[in-house]
Design a protein around this nucleic acid. Sequence first.
DNA 1: CAAAAATGTAAAGTATATTTGTCATTAAGT
DNA 2: ACTTAATGACAAATATACTTTACATTTTTG
Lengths: 66, 66
Amino acid sequence: MKNTIKVERAILDITQDELAKEIGVSRQTINSIEKNRYVPSTVLALKLSKLFGKPVNDFFVLEDQD
Amino acid sequence: MKNTIKVERAILDITQDELAKEIGVSRQTINSIEKNRYVPSTVLALKLSKLFGKPVNDFFVLEDQD
DNA sequence: CAAAAATGTAAAGTATATTTGTCATTAAGT
DNA sequence: ACTTAATGACAAATATACTTTACATTTTTG
């Protein structure tokens, strides 16, 4: 699964730390998701969806390997 | 977070077991998600999205407590 | 350039997702 | 009513998300 969280962050012009605080997780969690170190929970994805103002499928996309 | 997986299953007319096999998880995992025993990963949500033919936000919705 | 802010990463600990196996209960079919 | 299929649930084991702390590197800004 790939994601475009970095792009969404750029659109909102916020840092990883600010995004983390907005949705109530640690900065490292945001960093790890952006760098594909692990797959977030659906609740976290929905919180990002709410903040970004667009559906989960817009910034999280399945890859062939998934 | 609440979900309408049971409804989506009814639309496709498939059992928990069949759904589980389609997306490559155990039947208990599907059952547990339907019954809100735990929150699935975003990859699992995207696989359901693909199978259901609709965005994740359509069948997974945040609640006030989230 | 120098300082500060932002990012990347790692280790250790905790919480929770997911599996497999199993059994009880309910629903559906004959 | 009987049989089978489907669902709900639990326990133990394993995998992985997420936290906190900490530090190095990169980027931004004065």
